[in-house]
Design a protein around this nucleic acid. Structure first.
Lengths: 202, 202
DNA sequence: CATTTTCGATACGATACAGTTTCGTAAACT
DNA sequence: AGTTTACGAAACTGTATCGTATCGAAAATG
């Protein structure tokens, strides 16, 4: 009983239409941002009736949240045998997301709605950042085994610091070439450290 | 000749009304964000006619840009004799801006309009970040003189890394108490460095 | 074939906002 | 005084969007 395999009668919902509206949502979100995008525009771009969208989602926020959730690139866990090369690989893969219009608008949405509407930030955190944070921990563990970094290092903290630096650089240094080089310098600073000798912490 | 002291005839523009509309603009911007705010709402909040706003600004963007530009807190240049205490002071003063709704919405505006409309990012950079970047350079120079940090350190890079870390923390850790503590840990990491010994850079 | 549900298209009412104009009044100047 | 400009309030036009409803056609089930 309570089988899920009950096929409901009638015409089934078009998976093509569903995919098309999600794709159009991501495109337009990257182009004009969350507030400026209208359901009508999405429907037109997707070649889909507005009704078809409203049958699936009750609001624009739901639609966008679902669309973003489905963007799940494979997570890169580089293993070059040297931390610095691993980091370089991560910078490259991060650049594609951070510098893309979609990634930019996503971050803007999260920030602007952070107080009023924390759902987006939560989705982004759990679905996107959290897995990468854990993947990065693997990279750092290998570096620890190679004695490249201190054993008591908090991997999450390092990841957050790196993410923050990349985010800041993407906002104020939108040029991709200089971005990569700049991020490399900043991360080098992070790993080398700024103090001239080991100061007593706290 | 060509004196600027020519007083134009007629009733002068009300400085009270002007101040009121700028104040209301900042308030509402922090409350609902740029896109969701309307000129009517601002006028009503300020107790000012819409006409009076449109006489001064041609668009909502101009109004907001001018309002933000006028928020100029005094720049703190701490000098406690010890870098770590100086940094602590900077964290405290940064927290007030970064964690405020207004600061949050400002950053969101910059990010979302970064590609389409770079004016905001430029204003924010030159009017706000740039002076603080230079003020921070003074703090670092003192630390260099005290041999607390390496002499060849790029002050701007350190400032950017710190800013990025704080920005990231404010997005995903909106709780003020934990924010301060978290930022302190991250900055400690930045200054101490992550690598266990001085690896050959590049 | 009949039924059920979805499809895209279109029209619709409601609301919100932008930006302009009008109006009677207020504050400066000559 | 008279002139000039600004003031707040309100009305107004135009446009954009939302969310719903309706339509005939299409795709599935039985």
């Amino acid at each position: 009983m309570n089988e899920i395999n009950k096929k409901p009668p009638g015409r089934p919902r078009s998976v093509q239409s569903h995919a098309a509206m999600l794709q159009a949502t991501l495109e337009i979100l990257g182009e004009v941002g969350f507030d400026a995008m209208s359901i009508d525009t999405i429907a037109a771009r997707a070649g889909v009736g507005k009704t078809t969208i409203y049958r699936r989602y009750a609001s624009k926020a739901e639609l966008v949240a679902d669309a973003i959730e489905r963007v799940r690139e494979e997570i890169v866990i580089p293993d070059t045998g040297r931390l610095e090369s691993d980091i370089d690989a991560l910078i490259q893969s991060a650049a594609q997301i951070t510098l893309s219009p979609l990634g930019r608008q996503t971050v803007a949405m999260i920030i602007s709605s952070a107080s009023s509407n924390p759902e987006f930030a939560k989705i982004y955190w759990t679905k996107y950042l959290q897995p990468r944070r854990q993947a990065f921990a693997v990279v750092l563990e290998r570096a620890k085994a190679r004695r490249e970094i201190q054993a008591d290092l908090d991997p999450g903290l390092v990841f957050d610091a790196m993410s923050g630096i990349m985010l800041y650089a993407s906002i104020f240094q939108p040029n991709p070439e200089s971005w990569t080089e700049y991020v490399r310098r900043a991360l080098n600073l992070l790993f080398k450290g700024a103090s001239s000798f080991d100061a007593e912490p706290r």
